[in-house]
Amino acid sequence: MNLVGRSVKRFAGETPIGRKRRARKMAKVLAETHPDAHCELDFTTPLELAVATILSAQTTDVRVNQVTPTLFKRYVSAADYAAADRTEMEELLRPTGFFRAKTDSLIKLGQTLVDKHDGVLPAKLPDLVALPGIGRKTANVILGNAFGVPGITVDTHFRRLTNRFGWVQEEDPVKIEFLVADLIEKRDWTMLSHRVIFHGRRVCHARKPACGACTLAAMCPSYGAGPTEAPAAAKLLKGPRARDLAAAAGVDPDLVPVAAVTTPEAP
């Protein structure tokens, strides 16, 4: 039986209001479980975040953060990107992969901002998604983290986990965004996205989630998709807070191997 089928079976008969209450309880526990959740792209201005988010496609935030310090020193304004030398920018972006397409997006982004927005990144969703290189996911990242406008970012982790949680039975990112928005209070949307992503990297892995060391176990319809025994589950936890996560789930932190703490979290 697939995960969606298992979710439906365990919570068969759950009412819409029951799902909303359970989702909000899970969101509260996620806040307690991952107090360090945050946007992992380094930026100081909305434009910098827009650029970093465009560069993050098909690569890691760590790699992007290695490239952007030099990039941001050289290109400060939208006009700088609009007038950029293509060959020079491509060399800077080469480590992020797909550097030619990304260079094209950044130059066109700068040109569009100069031509249509007086060089200033707009703070409204319809305006953002009309810009080169910026889709709905990127726009929500920018709105939530640069402008303080609540937004839900549906990436691979978010899509996988919201289905496992039984919050949705959907693969389309836009539909997931709207369905989750109906479950969770608007003020929590931005941070919920970060917390779900952190949980996906640290605990609820794609192939083998650490079900027996998960703080959401009692509320998750997909409990049992991974090992439920504490020793086996604890070994699957990843990241610098792996032992804290084990303790929060009522599992002996000493069951978490040293390698789990030092192994980088999944991108």
Rank of each mutant, 00 (worst) to 15 (best):
R195C: 10
L183W: 10
G151N: 05
T153V: 15
A146M: 05
L113D: 08
R136D: 13
T228S: 14
E177Q: 10
W189D: 09
P231F: 04
N163V: 11
V203F: 00
L183I: 11
Y223T: 15
L125A: 13
A234S: 12
E171L: 13
E171A: 09
E170K: 07
M219S: 13
V196H: 02
A217P: 04
G135N: 12
K175E: 10
G148I: 08
I142W: 06
H157T: 04
D127L: 11
A218F: 00
G166K: 11
C220F: 09
L161A: 06
A210H: 04
A123T: 08
G200S: 02
C211Q: 02
I176V: 15
D155V: 02
G224A: 08
K175Q: 10
K175F: 01
P173R: 04
T190S: 09
G119F: 04
L143C: 04
G212T: 03
W167I: 02
P122F: 11
L128A: 09
K235C: 05
L237W: 12
T215F: 00
N145I: 03
H199M: 01
R160G: 01
V203K: 01
P132F: 10
F178P: 00
D155C: 03
C220V: 07
R164F: 03
L236K: 08
L121Q: 05
M219N: 07
H199W: 02
T190P: 15
R207D: 11
C214K: 01
G224H: 07
C220M: 07
V180L: 06
P150F: 04
G133D: 11
T156I: 12
T156W: 09
N163K: 07
H157N: 09
F165G: 07
N163P: 02
